[in-house]
Nucleic acid binder design. Sequence first.
DNA 1: CTTTGTCCTAACAAAATTGTTAAACAGTAT
DNA 2: ATACTGTTTAACAATTTTGTTAGGACAAAG
Lengths: 208, 208
Amino acid sequence: MDNQEKQSKEQLILAAAEQEFLTKGYDGARTTSIAQAAGVTHAMLHYYFRTKEQLFERIVDDKFATMSHSMVAIIGDPSLPIVERIKGGIAAHFDFIAANPLLPRFVINEIVSRPERYEVLYKRAGFVVNSVYNSLQAEVDSAAERGEIERVDVKMLFISIMSLNIFTFVAYPFMEPIMGELMANREQFLAERKAENIETILRRIKKQ
Amino acid sequence: MDNQEKQSKEQLILAAAEQEFLTKGYDGARTTSIAQAAGVTHAMLHYYFRTKEQLFERIVDDKFATMSHSMVAIIGDPSLPIVERIKGGIAAHFDFIAANPLLPRFVINEIVSRPERYEVLYKRAGFVVNSVYNSLQAEVDSAAERGEIERVDVKMLFISIMSLNIFTFVAYPFMEPIMGELMANREQFLAERKAENIETILRRIKKQ
DNA sequence: CTTTGTCCTAACAAAATTGTTAAACAGTAT
DNA sequence: ATACTGTTTAACAATTTTGTTAGGACAAAG
């Protein structure tokens, strides 16, 4: 009958924990409230995950992986011409964040509150980013040589794209009440915003 | 001697509380740790502010006011020609956030975690924003008629400016370790970033 | 010198939150 | 049936965190 019965208690707890941690953060989350949302006693949570800390780690690992996938999406399809590629990259990144709107705020908050914990993770990430963007910069440079686009710093462009796309969702609850009709219809606003972000970046790289 | 002696205990507690709440949020903050940072017993904190909640409200009120000042800065100097005005508005907003780098994340987190608390505040803010931007939109429209700039939606432009400026600081701890040399020198990076944000927006409104 | 009010401390109390344990239970293999 | 396994519950324990209180020190005012 009830299709929650199909999922194991462990799955139920993980799902409830994800929701709780993403919205309230580690400090704001309560193991009892996670257990309640999952429909189990809080002893079960300790039975499966031992401590709040370990349950949290499970969520964090998943979310950090998802976040890095989202960033990879910006790179776009290398087989396309540079402008189309960037266009597609922005759209893919935007859609990715739209599907995981709570993700960036969670990841950023976590890194701010416990930076030391992610140093190791970061050594790798920095290395990957650097090699990827060296080749991307070369591609942009050669397109600039051919006069197709303006010469730009790829890392700066990358930061701008993330800014425009991520802020839309991170600040949504902050902006929505003060923006009136513009944001009244969420679907429509997000579509407009995606187009606006693409337009903004394309104009940034357009040869003039 | 010690110039901390000059400040009242109340001031010391407020300063310590501001630091603690801005970095760790309400849930992560500990009244004992605030008291310790202020160099007083935690009973003093309750003596002056009764509860953690009331101490927090003092900080929140101050920070929300500061945040709204920062947003007003974007409006710029009405006596300048439109492009100069926008340029100045972006720079002023950027500098404001640079001087209060922890502010946006704090305000956004607070609104996300307790939206109901700020409904009243928001009724007003939405009203003010609307009237300000109606007149601003009219000004932009007339500049567009004269062919000085592209026709743009002022609210969308406003969101883009906030995105570019605020993300720089909100995500700084997240980006810094993966961006290598680009962000090695904070002062230099921020100067470059400010210029980049202005360039990005100016190109967005440039007639083409 | 006493009174009054503010500031302050140390110890205590209360509440919330996380974590543990012993025993019950359900299913499965022997 | 019996023993064995992993799962579940209810009650309890420990810890952390917030909040209280009784009283002392001290300065200003009468």
